[in-house]
Design a protein around this nucleic acid. Structure first.
Lengths: 216, 216
DNA sequence: CCATCCTGAACGAGCGTTCAGTCAGCGGAG
DNA sequence: CTCCGCTGACTGAACGCTCGTTCAGGATGG
């Protein structure tokens, strides 16, 4: 994201009020989107939940899509902040990776509805808005990638392609919100351990390493 | 799925014709859903693409949701068939797992649009229809689970919780269709190797196995 | 009494769904 | 062979509804 995030144009002048209202709208939309999805949530419902009239709502946004964008931006900002905090704190790469994964899973747990919306509705956004999201996503991936590269250098990891590994690690964390119905019998801690375990050691327990590819 | 899959009620009598038309409708809807998503595709569009009038279409389905169900059933059936074929063929658990993962990824590649629809729109279905999907999903998971359990017994794998492992493995395969924009620079073979590699050995290369949990 | 913010009825478009009507094909009666 | 009536599949205009969006007018406070 080279340029600053484009502001959503509004009719209202008072900047502080705009900010307050945007938070209001976000909160309202967040819950509704999570429960019913973007398409099945009407602007009227969002307005009502945000304690605004439809007209008032439309002085703080230009279109319904802006609301989705508002929600996405908020959640992604939050994630970036929390993650950079977590990663800095812990020292050796393995602990760092574990911390990163656990933090991500905790965030995904807190905002599991939002993750669903993120995965389910991002195709709704226009090209330009999508590019913004991709940018944030890439940043998130590169945080993990950096950890892995450091771990490779220090001899803790042997990831051939740190970028690919980072993408997969981050994606695997999404199993918690996205496959909730499949994981009903597990709690967050169990899944967290499972994810960390499989990512560090796989299920092979170190038997027949890289070279068993030649067997087939 | 204890009971047989409930048939979609139709007005038309001729069973063979119904089957033919359902295939027609599936094909048409499949492409439209993949391109625009379920909500943004109108019944009129589907009818046109299926070379049917709106009225005729409605003699083969009861509601728009039936079309989504039709599409889901087809794709899931296809997956199950292809997967059971693949798994049976290969012998030792490691090869079997690899074959399963590669087959899943290939299927996900062939039908990547469909996987997107599956993940993005399943919250649209009513409870009853969702239960059907979950049932199929569980079967799919248990195919992988069986492989892992056999591998554990034979000493190839050391997965503590085969069910959790199976869920994660299957989910990780979805990275290919769901994170396409992130994986643009990779091809299927590379991602396939990456997924198999990380699942068998993790990124730790066998260093500091299970017990490094105690370090934090 | 203006500037600023808010209200909610109204608008046009598009949706999923229906149904009165059309028509091809077929079997039996003349 | 022709005609008739009938069945079963198809047509597409029409219906009722809800949607996202707008805007003339009301309220409020400085």
């Amino acid at each position: 994201m080279p340029a600053a995030v484009r502001q959503i144009e509004t009719v209202v002048k008072d900047r502080a009020l705009i900010e307050r209202r945007h938070v209001q709208i976000c909160d309202a939309a967040l819950h509704l989107f999570a429960r019913k999805g973007y398409h099945l949530t009407s602007v009227r419902e969002i307005a009502q939940a945000a304690h605004l009239s439809v007209g008032a709502l439309y002085t703080y946004i230009k279109s319904k899509e802006d609301i989705l964008l508002l929600v996405y931006r908020r959640i992604l900002n939050l994630f970036q902040v929390k993650m950079s905090e977590t990663i800095v704190e812990s020292g050796d790469p393995t602990a760092q990776l574990r911390a990163g994964i656990e933090a991500t899973l905790t965030l995904y747990d807190d905002y599991h509805d939002l993750i669903l919306v993120l995965y389910q509705e991002s195709h709704t956004l226009r090209k330009e808005a999508l590019q913004q999201l991709f940018g944030v996503d890439r940043q998130y991936v590169s945080m993990f990638q950096a950890i892995i590269e450091r771990g490779n250098r220090k001899g803790h990891f042997v990831a051939e392609d740190p970028n690919l590994a980072a993408i997969m690690i981050l994606f695997l964390c999404a199993v918690w919100p996205l496959k909730r119905w499949n994981l009903k019998k597990y709690d967050l801690a169990t899944v967290s351990d499972g994810v960390v375990g499989i990512l560090l050691n796989g299920i092979g327990g170190g038997h027949g390493l890289r070279n068993d590819r030649a067997a087939d």
